[in-house]
């Protein structure tokens, strides 16, 4: 049972690690995109600042949306993992309690047998 719990913990950690690996769009890439956009659409010099602001705003919006989606995704996976873990712990605990009770009964049995022999 412990192995299952350890393995599942590792799975969840891997999962969280994977979801954290979403690459953020770096400043360099944003600048590159702006330059590319300017060369294609022949933006006038006075509009360059406005274009840069617009691209940055869009990138920020996209990243914010992605963060929101990932929050939902991680929340769902965590909830599922938690339900499984609680259930496995419950089975483990139940089995342990029963084993203890059975051992106790067997012990009582042997005590009674010894007394009757005496």
């Amino acid at each position: 049972m412990r192995i299952v719990i350890v393995v599942s913990c590792v799975i969840v950690l891997v999962l969280l690690f994977l979801t954290m690996q979403v690459p953020e769009i770096s400043e360099d890439k944003i600048k590159q995109a702006i330059n590319d956009g300017q060369s294609v659409s022949e933006v006038k010099d006075e509009d360059q600042q406005a274009l840069q602001d617009a691209v940055k705003k869009i990138v920020e919006q996209l990243e914010s949306n992605q963060r929101t989606r990932l929050k939902y995704l991680v929340a769902a996976y965590l909830v599922i993992w938690l339900v499984f873990m609680l259930y496995l712990l419950r089975i483990g605990k139940q089995q342990q309690t029963l084993d203890q009770r059975l051992a106790q009964i067997e012990l009582d049995d042997s005590d009674n047998h010894d007394k009757s022999v005496e």
Partner: peptide, 16 residues
């Protein structure tokens, strides 16, 4: 247990 998972993960999907 699986039905609980469905009922808990469903609303997270639904919210989005």
């Amino acid at each position: 247990v699986f039905c609980t998972i469905v009922l808990l993960s469903g609303p997270i999907w639904a919210k989005y």
